[in-house]
Design a protein around this nucleic acid. Structure first.
Lengths: 224, 224
DNA sequence: ATGACTCTCACCCGTTTGAGGGAAATGACG
DNA sequence: CGTCATTTCCCTCAAACGGGTGAGAGTCAT
């Protein structure tokens, strides 16, 4: 697959000016944005053609510059990364977005890949891995770091929650009692208990406190 | 206070080559480190003289280069920022460390300031604020961003926990029942309940689940 | 249209938890 | 020395919680 091992191609090193990969960087943290931009510009075959600091801006800018690759942060104020990816890929189904996140929670990873991201990088990864992933995605691959793959496998092994179970879990993490959850969801308290029972089983915990912790730990429900 | 409004000083613009502020940057995320370095180097009066990617390295490097200012990430694998600050300030009580963190949890802020940090910045702050804070700390001030100050105030209003209460809270967040907490701390179950009662009061919650959530939200106990 | 899944609700039963009260021992601080 | 905070322990009681079981109504795909 890789263009490097094409033995039949004629050898020509210098002659081709080689078009640079045009990257759009999206991150709400100024120093991180600066770092990603510098990192990419330091790579010979890549260039940053635009930046954005949130989801809405990313969508606008994408339409303007039509980059080859988008490097997108996941958690941003206002429109998050997932919504931005969905919006971009709705208009441009062939858009190639790579998520660059601080968090390695399996639900974050899953949501990102589900929404159409081509890869998922962590900010603690070495610059070589970031660069090679950009290169790989540009060439049509979907190179997913091993550690991220493993997280994704973990999630796959966990039974996934139904919509209603997520509702209950979310209410639970707001600190509500069964009775309060019931009235906030307009169902009977027994129904809440019923959902909780399956939640405990699926999350491999025995009580609501354990469920809350697991939900937060895996990023199933975001705090705040 | 600011050296700009010194009307009595003789005006001399160019002549002074002005010694640059020598900064040590500590962060485990490569792109963030690159960004912080680039940010500082872009400021005329500052320069990065060394970098480190974790606490241990930071301590070593500090001894070597004796920087004017340390820009330190808080959450790092191995030795975290707080321990690094304590270690550095033990040997060099006049060390000036500025924390640069992703998180604005009040406990994180408090622990950092407690350990001797001169200021606490968030990574979503504009580069001007980061630069001016470095300048301010270099000049002997402790310029704390308003939003960070407010967080500190919030924490101050909350009653602080005793060591034993933190033990119970930590065990609680491991998903343990009262009985299990009791045996893990070698105390009676009733004692656990007693601590929980005061915990609920101090955290303004009614049950263990609420306590777990609040503890995580405020960074009192770190998940994982 | 039969099975699979979800959501809903109900009942029983035992355990855990939280609210109320009180009290003794320790060490720190003035 | 007395006072305060902290830690430890005890008791009772009612409410909340969790396990087990079952079951009707709805959607959906095969």
């Amino acid at each position: 697959m890789s263009s490097e091992s094409d033995f039949n191609a004629p050898v020509r090193r210098k002659p081709v000016p080689e078009k640079k990969i045009r990257v759009l960087v999206v991150d709400d943290h100024p120093p991180m944005r600066i770092g990603l931009v510098a990192l990419i510009k330091s790579q010979p075959g890549m260039d940053v053609i635009a930046e954005a600091s949130d989801g809405e801006e990313a969508i606008e800018v994408y339409d303007d510059v039509l980059p080859d690759i988008v490097l997108m942060d996941l958690r941003m104020p206002g429109m998050g990364g997932v919504e931005a990816i969905l919006a971009i890929r709705k208009k441009h189904p062939d858009a190639r977005v790579i998520v660059v996140s601080t968090y390695d929670m399996d639900e974050d990873i899953h949501r990102a890949m589900q929404s159409g991201a081509k890869s998922y990088l962590l900010k603690d990864m070495p610059i070589e891995e970031i660069a090679s992933t950009i290169q790989g995605v540009y060439e049509g691959d979907t190179p997913l770091p091993r550690s991220v793959q493993e997280r994704l496998m973990e999630r796959a092994q966990r039974q996934q929650l139904t919509e209603r179970e997520r509702d209950v879990l979310e209410a639970l993490i707001k600190g509500r009692s069964n009775k309060e959850i019931a009235s906030s969801l307009c169902i009977a308290e027994d129904t809440v208990k019923s959902h909780l029972k399956t939640l405990f089983t699926k999350l491999h915990v025995r009580d609501r406190t354990g469920a809350a912790i697991e939900a937060i730990r895996h990023g199933i429900i975001h705090l705040k």
